[in-house]
Design a protein around this nucleic acid. Sequence first.
DNA 1: ATGCAGAATGTTCACGTTTTCATTGTAGAT
DNA 2: ATCTACAATGAAAACGTGAACATTCTGCAT
Lengths: 340, 340
Amino acid sequence: MSLSRRPTIRDVARAAGVSTVTVSRVSNEPELVVAATRERVQSAMRALGYVPNLAARTMRTNATHTIGFLVPDLTIYPNAAVAQAAARRLGEAGYALLLASSDQQPEREIEALSILRTRQVDGVILYACDQDHPSLRAAVRDLDVPSVLLDRDMPSRADRIYSDHRSAMHEAVRRLVDLGHRRMILLQYDMRIRPSLERRAAFLEVIEEAGIVATEGQAIRLPLDLMTLSEIGAALLDGDPAPTAVIVEGSRLLLATIQAARLRGLAIPAQLSVIAIDAADVATAATPEISCILRDFESIGTAAADTMLARLKDRDSRPSATHLPSRFVEQPSLAPPPPS
Amino acid sequence: MSLSRRPTIRDVARAAGVSTVTVSRVSNEPELVVAATRERVQSAMRALGYVPNLAARTMRTNATHTIGFLVPDLTIYPNAAVAQAAARRLGEAGYALLLASSDQQPEREIEALSILRTRQVDGVILYACDQDHPSLRAAVRDLDVPSVLLDRDMPSRADRIYSDHRSAMHEAVRRLVDLGHRRMILLQYDMRIRPSLERRAAFLEVIEEAGIVATEGQAIRLPLDLMTLSEIGAALLDGDPAPTAVIVEGSRLLLATIQAARLRGLAIPAQLSVIAIDAADVATAATPEISCILRDFESIGTAAADTMLARLKDRDSRPSATHLPSRFVEQPSLAPPPPS
DNA sequence: ATGCAGAATGTTCACGTTTTCATTGTAGAT
DNA sequence: ATCTACAATGAAAACGTGAACATTCTGCAT
């Protein structure tokens, strides 16, 4: 009694002695079908191994039950962690994740957005790679599917998930100031996106608040790909007097910093205090353990998914903005500056 | 003259004064349409902003131009790197990547495979999370879409991409033996998959070949989630005499190992030689730089994509197997064992 | 001139589902 | 008994495309 081809709604209808409409309703609005009929249909579905054809469904409803997820680089831990958490939550709701990577190139990101549009994804969740790039800004602004913007300041009607980078950074820098540090530097690998800008701003705010004169080379950007130890070494030793504390963005930069410090013979924390951002793995494994500004990427991904799901249910409500915390966790990597 | 709804093949046909079939042919088999007509159709497409409706196309052809990519954990660097490389190559060929994560659980992986099937992906590329799990083995064996098995020994008609884990491991262990090491341990975080088994086997082969008696605790598995420093510390110091060399799998274990060594006051390489596997980032940033067994994840992902594309073109050819190399790169983390 | 092969294009229908609208059945109000 | 309202179900059409088959046209051999 089994079919060679995949069973369709018609096969189920025939087997259950009802019309296709009723079968469709059992799938989509079961409460409209009286219990006896419903059960008959459901057992026919099971018997035949019926699974609705998604393409046909999409053609009628224009819904693909697919969400596009766009990242600059999947090998950066936070991106992968957020994507995975979002995929899990969306999967529970029957949505799948279509992955696209821009490789940090705005043009490729624009192209990816257009591909996602072509594929009629029901929504897009994205980490834009450059929030200042004009055409990319335009492409994001003109997105006509429900979208969730992850931690970017860009004009858009999209829902947003923000991390609070400032409070934890304030706390961290104040702690350094309280310990007596006067010469601190911030090492970052990207300046095109909100997290870096926020951190930088918060960093400079506390500097100023403490009455320290902020100098040119105090917040430094190091391109990740050119991230050489010598550059970091230079940054560490640059200036007179040399910095007594460093705040570092990301695991890769943190590793390089620890290495550079060791090469220059700078002991942590005796001669150099170190604080890491978004680098829990390396920070925890380092000796001494490195103080860290942390976020919960799992909950960022989950929040993005939930926001998307809510938006898909109610398309007309005002764009939402969710703010998630960072926290500063102190470890033995901090000490007063060495006597000069 | 523009439409409110998305233009269809019919709109293009009307604008170009041809039938829908001709428009369809311009999209799919342009050589069948005479140049003049073809250009007329193409300019009508451009004028209307026509993009083929993928769902309708899928319903006719049963092809989704979507490939499922299944990983145990996206936050593990090699997985993310391979996925990203595959996505890039597949994207160039007009395919998109549907991401699924099993979270290291065979049951969830089976479920994910079934979801991918429901979504009618044209193919599946997968890192199975456990090559010995009976139901998962059955699910993989019974996959009825073109699939590429990444570095697993499982029965299947799928194409395969293998890494050669043995040669580089042989080389690495022989180097240790040549340096005079007699007591070496291998730290791994997974034993359910081919790479770990191969490495373990290769490790023990050289041990035996060197006439060293392999003991119980010589190849040790440490669950990643329970990966505590104390466990690693115990492993390092266990046995009498204590091991003089460690080979470590993955960035996270390497970090923990370096930390454990430092805590126990074991200098690298004077008292402990260290070799890392698949942990280029940490190995490079460590001091001293750690010797490493490396793979090119980019080319693994690209090979997987190419294999899939070839399979989609020719469904009947024999399953292929691609073997990609690993290489051993020595760094200052190796030295003769300390005099006992 | 006629026939014919093959190139170019068209007509019709099917893919599997949901939507719209119509029909039947049932129970309660009159 | 009749009417009404509503619940339950069904018939037919539509979504946008591509495949099978049909038709027209062109040029060339007879």
